[in-house]
Design a protein around this nucleic acid. Structure first.
Lengths: 340, 340
DNA sequence: ACTGGCACTCGCACACGCCGAGTGCCAAGC
DNA sequence: GCTTGGCACTCGGCGTGTGCGAGTGCCAGT
């Protein structure tokens, strides 16, 4: 059985009112606050159907209705109009993000901004190394048996790692190695580097091969295997808004989940071509987050995607507003990265 | 009026029992669980005195007693015996911290370890730049008008910053500048660098002065002014242990405080020669943390101190255990840094 | 100075009853 | 046939009342 337009309208009204008031909404209140053009009794009938179909439910027998996860899903997919940002918000974004001096700075500002605008927990992934290309590799001699390997990616990320050499290496050799390494790797996608690194070792002069092998292994580890994904988080205090009512009764599991980088990456990291991803309550695979919703998207210069960002909050969330904000912030950050 | 030994013993018993059970402790329960050698009535008289002096209080008229901040203070200062770590704990620390490849890695492991061992919120400050010396400065040409400035500190910290040059600069000049800059700054305490940097500009050849001035300003900003202190945080989920009873009723203010780097730095950063610092409840200057206690100390290679670390939890906290753990972890981290 | 005894206080848990919001259903109306 | 007003019903929330018991303060006795 399909739902007619009025029933959908009723669902929308329920979602909007519930999100706004945080209280179960009854038929009478509904007709008062929205121009539905019908009586409470009619609305009640519609509600009965919506409940039967699983879009809403009653917390207890004689209370108003509350949307279910399924209800929010339908709302997000078919009922919510995009809510354009206010000029003030646009200006806030611009003002906040301009003046960032650093990739670190950009990420930190972004995550705070996102938390502030949405009043939720915000997560921003640093540009993924896997999706970056090498811009430059630098070998900095620290002592005769130690060099610092610095990798600068085209996304602005900089990774460094100390390399302990098996034997002392003269400065000239290091200069030469730097030249070779850059010649071979600069401009390459990090994901394409492993064979190139292997080739480097093969091609190097016998007397330098040992050193080069050490270097290569660190290189591989840093660049590919450990493939360190980094994250920034902000706004956890927002979890306490609206009491402990959201997140059925305890912040514990949510806070625990937020401590696990792996989990967060799963949440916002799996960037597909799809523009915007909304996961509502039970749709989350992580058990600890069954009471939460996540709105996330990818960002990057132009059309490419180098990382993910998003927010996490109670299922009772202003989806249109949140989606609009997340999208806008992602776009600004992308533009910012494009300028570098 | 001074408190005789038995009264102090009573206070200790109250603190220990309350920390263990989280329930107000009465006179009868006290004599049962501790060998005080006197009757409940006597204990009651002692309690009356302790209450008068402000060390304990009753939540309501006919309940047991609970330590006040002042009571905890007395307990920490005069009554608690240091609780040596179990071998298992020592081993855990060692196992956890060995195998760190990076300063980043060290800090992250440390903060997680600390959170896990104390079951509180842990905070670790990265080695402060202000207390570091320059080990090496590297100028990496990115394009003709852009160079990446990489500063490697003796504490292992690496900071980088993009420098936009006013005019294109040939590679040779950059090599020369690198030499000059290192000659002047390597080995110097960061806090001593400003005049040296100024001198660098003055001494440079006229045709390079412009470039050098740009470089110098970025240098100063990165190294001294912005003097970026970094932090790692873990264990926020531990705040939810013991319900919302601790932190009088709301985690909100605490979570908010934990989001402010400035506040956290104040908490654990002000490292004085004193070895261990315990701030209990109202002793905290930050209003949001009036319901919390902070145990912190400095760490660093040998006797020097390069940063702070500590934990934050409810005033109802196992002080002896926490203090022992924080001290032990700080020592291990210091040793680890000394090895670099 | 310590102790046993005793009256007293008060928070907590539980039971009771009322109120009212909100519902489902039904019969009447457009 | 959908919509509507009417109506009986349900049930959670809240305020009141009561009993219980832990814990206290005080006092008189040793």
């Amino acid at each position: 059985m399909s739902l007619d337009d009025r029933k959908l309208e009723v669902l929308r009204a329920i979602v909007e009112d519930y999100v706004a008031t945080q209280e179960p909404v009854g038929s009478k209140a509904l007709v008062e606050r929205h121009q539905l053009g019908v009586s409470p009794a009619t609305v009640r009938n519609d509600m009965a159907v919506l409940e039967e179909e699983g879009y809403i439910r009653q917390p207890h027998t004689s209370a108003g209705r509350v949307p279910t996860d399924l209800g929010y899903r339908l709302f997000v997919d078919r009922l919510s109009r995009v809510k354009p940002l206010s000029p003030a918000e646009r200006r806030a974004i611009e003002r906040f993000l301009d003046g960032a001096v650093d990739l670190d700075d950009v990420v930190h500002r972004t995550v705070r901004l996102l938390a502030q605008l949405t009043r939720q927990v915000a997560v921003v992934q640093y540009p993924s190394l896997a999706r970056s290309a090498v811009r430059h590799l630098e070998l900095v001699p620290i002592s005769t048996t130690r060099i610092m390997l610095v990798m600068i990616a085209d996304t602005g990320r900089v990774e460094q790692r100390l390399v302990e050499l098996p034997t002392p290496v003269p400065a000239d050799d290091i200069t030469e190695m730097r030249r070779k390494v850059n010649e071979k790797l600069a401009g390459q996608k990090l994901s394409d580097t492993p064979p190139l690194v292997a080739a480097l070792v093969d091609e190097s002069a016998p007397e330098r091969r040992n050193t080069m092998a050490t270097l290569a292994s660190v290189l591989l580890e840093t660049l590919v295997e450990r493939s360190e994904e980094r994250l920034a988080l902000a706004g956890t205090a927002n979890l306490t808004r609206g009491g402990v009512l959201d997140f059925h009764g305890s912040l514990r599991p949510v806070l625990e989940a937020l401590e696990e980088e792996v989990i967060l990456l799963k949440l916002i990291g799996e960037v597909e071509p799809s523009t915007m991803r909304v996961r509502i309550g039970d749709e989350n695979e992580i058990d600890n987050l069954r009471s939460a919703s996540v709105v996330s998207t990818g960002y990057g210069p132009g059309a490419t995607i180098v990382g993910g960002l998003g927010v996490l909050g109670p299922t009772r969330m202003d989806y249109p507003g949140t989606i609009a904000t997340v999208r806008a912030v992602a776009r600004y950050v992308g533009d910012l990265l494009a300028q570098n």
